[in-house]
Design a protein around this nucleic acid. Structure first.
Lengths: 152, 152
DNA sequence: TATTGTTATACTCTATAACTATA
DNA sequence: TATAGTTATAGAGTATAACAATA
C-alpha cells in the first residue's frame, strides 16, 4: 500500500482479501462511472442485458442465481428494464409459474450500441497492471468467484 | 466460470474485471457476515477502528482519504462510533477546523477482542485458492488498489 | 478563497419476510 | 408442501450540493 495516503499505516490490511477487494472494486467502479456514466446504463443492468443476449429465454430465477442477485431484487430490476422497453417476458406453457426473459429489438440495439465502449473500458481499466498481471488476476478471480448460487 | 449455474453462458464476462470483482467481493462478504455477523461489527466500521488503533490521532479527512470513503459519509460513521463510545474526538490547537480521532479504552478493548476472529476468518475466506494463489492475488490487488484518495 | 467537517438528500445494492399463483 | 416470482421494507454504501467555522 505504498502508494496510498502518505503517512497512514494500513499495513494491517495488506493481507485482508475483503479490504483489498473493496478498494479495488471501488476504484474500478469509479472509473466506470467517470467514463461511461453518460451512457445511460449501470453495470448491473448492463450485465443483465448482456447475459440475456447470450442466453435468450433464460428464466428469471436462473439468471438471478447465475449473477448472484437475490430474486426479490431481480424482480425490481427486470420490471425497470421491461418498463424501459428493453426486455420482454414470456410465461412458458409447461410451467406457468416461471418467466422467460428476452431482449426486445430495442434492447438488442441498446446492447449492441454500448458493448464496444463497455468492454473497451473494461480492458483499459487497470493501467496499474501489465497485460500478464491482468490475465493472472482475472484467472484467480474466476477461480475465487465460481458461483454456486443463492444460499437460502 | 465452469462452476457457475449450469447451462448459463457467462463467457462474455470472463474477462471483465468489474464483473469478477463484484462477484468475488460478494462471495467474500457473504462469508464474512455468515461467520462474523453476530460479532456486532460491520467490515467498514471495523476497518476504521483498526486503522485508528494503528494510527492514533489521525485526522478524519486523512482517514477518509486513505480508506476511500467520502468525507460526508465518514462524518456519519464517526458520529455513530463516538455515540457508541468507541472513538473520541479532539480538536488540535494548530488547526481548529480539523478533528483528530482516537480509540477510547472501550474502543481499544472492542478491537482487541475481535481482531483475532476477523483476521482468522479473512485468512480462511478463500478455500478455492491455494496459499500460493492467494498470495499472488493479494499482491495483484495491492498493486491495483494503491489508493490516491478522493477525486473532487 | 480554500479547506475541514457537517447536514440533507438520493440512488444503488443487498437482505428478509410475507404474499400470490402455480406445481 | 415446495417453487417462481412479487411486494414491502430496511439497512449499508456511495454520491452530490449547500452550509458553518476556520485558515
Amino acid at each position: 500500500m505504498s502508494g496510498a495516503a502518505p503517512g497512514v499505516d494500513l499495513s494491517r490490511f495488506e493481507s485482508s482479501l475483503g479490504f483489498l477487494l473493496r478498494l479495488s472494486q471501488q476504484k474500478i467502479f469509479a472509473r466506470f462511472f467517470a467514463t461511461l456514466g453518460p451512457l445511460d446504463l449501470t453495470p448491473g443492468a448492463f450485465t443483465i442485458l448482456l447475459a440475456l443476449r447470450d442466453n435468450p429465454g433464460l428464466r428469471q430465477g436462473v439468471l438471478a442465481n447465475a449473477l448472484m442477485i437475490k430474486r426479490a431484487n431481480m424482480a425490481k430490476i427486470v420490471r425497470a428494464l421491461v418498463d424501459r422497453g428493453l426486455v420482454s417476458r414470456h410465461v412458458p406453457e409447461d410451467d406457468r409459474r416461471a418467466i422467460e426473459l428476452n431482449l426486445t429489438p430495442e434492447g438488442a440495439a441498446f446492447v449492441a450500441a454500448r458493448e464496444g465502449a463497455f468492454f473497451a473500458h473494461d480492458d483499459e481499466s487497470s493501467p496499474e497492471l501489465t497485460d500478464n498481471e491482468r490475465e493472472t488476476l482475472l484467472g484467480l478471480l474466476r477461480k475465487l468467484a465460481g458461483t454456486q448460487g443463492e444460499t437460502p
